[in-house]
C-alpha cells in the first residue's frame, strides 16, 4: 500500500473510476418516482423498448410485439400524479395535449383507449388476470405478482407534480 500515497496518480484514477461507477449505478437504479411498465408474469413479453412502449400507449401498436394477440393497456385515473408524469415523460404531452390526442384517436376511429383503473390496487388486480395486459405503476409499488418490462426514468425537468397541473382524462371507463 506504500505505493499508493494520497496524491498518487493511480489512486486519483481509481477515485475517478469509483465515482463514475457510483454515479452510473445511481443513474440506472430505480429511484423514488420512477415508473415501472408492468405486465402479467405469464405474459410472453419479457421486455420492451422505449419506442415500443411509446407506440403501445399512443395506440399505434395494437398487438403485443412478436405475438398475434391484442394488447390490453391500462391507465391510472385522471388525477393520479403517476399518470400525469408517465405521459409527460413518455410522450412529452401535457394533460391537455394528451386529452386532445386521445379525442382525435378515439373519435377518429383509430382504436380503443386504455382502460382506466381507479387505483393502483385495481390496476394490479387487472394485470394479474390478463396475460396480455400492460400498465404502469410507481416503481416502489411493484411486487412479485407483476413482471417489469421497462423502467421509465423520470426527468424532473419534464415532470410536474403539482395538483393544479394534473388535468388528465380518459374516455374509456369500462
Amino acid at each position: 500500500m506504500r505505493y499508493f500515497t494520497s496524491n498518487s496518480p493511480i489512486q486519483n484514477l481509481l477515485r475517478s473510476y469509483v465515482s463514475a461507477l457510483v454515479l452510473l449505478t445511481i443513474a440506472t437504479a430505480p429511484v423514488y418516482g420512477d415508473i415501472a411498465i408492468v405486465t402479467n408474469p405469464n405474459s410472453p413479453i419479457s421486455e420492451l423498448s422505449h419506442r415500443q412502449i411509446t407506440k403501445i400507449f399512443m395506440g399505434k401498436l395494437r398487438l403485443l410485439p412478436g405475438t398475434t394477440s391484442e394488447v390490453i393497456t391500462y391507465d391510472l385515473e385522471n388525477s393520479n400524479n403517476t399518470k400525469d408524469n408517465f405521459y409527460r415523460q413518455l410522450l412529452g404531452m401535457t394533460p391537455s395535449k394528451l386529452a386532445r390526442y386521445r379525442a382525435s384517436y378515439l373519435f377518429g376511429g383509430k382504436g380503443r383507449l386504455p382502460i382506466s383503473a381507479e387505483t393502483e390496487k385495481e390496476l394490479i388486480q387487472k394485470l394479474t388476470t390478463n396475460d396480455h395486459a400492460i400498465g404502469y405503476i410507481p416503481h416502489a409499488s411493484i411486487n412479485d405478482r407483476l413482471k417489469v418490462i421497462y423502467l421509465l426514468k423520470l426527468n424532473p425537468l419534464t415532470t410536474e407534480e403539482t395538483e393544479t397541473d394534473s388535468i388528465t382524462q380518459t374516455f374509456n371507463d369500462n
Binding site: A99, A103, F107
Partner: peptide, 19 residues
C-alpha cells in the same frame, strides 16, 4: 361505413375538442 380520408383532420371534423 367510414370517413373518406380527404384531409389531415378528416376523421374528426365534427369533434371540435380534437383540434
Amino acid at each position: 361505413r367510414m370517413r373518406t380520408p380527404f384531409y389531415l383532420f378528416s376523421e374528426t371534423m365534427e369533434v371540435g375538442y380534437s383540434y
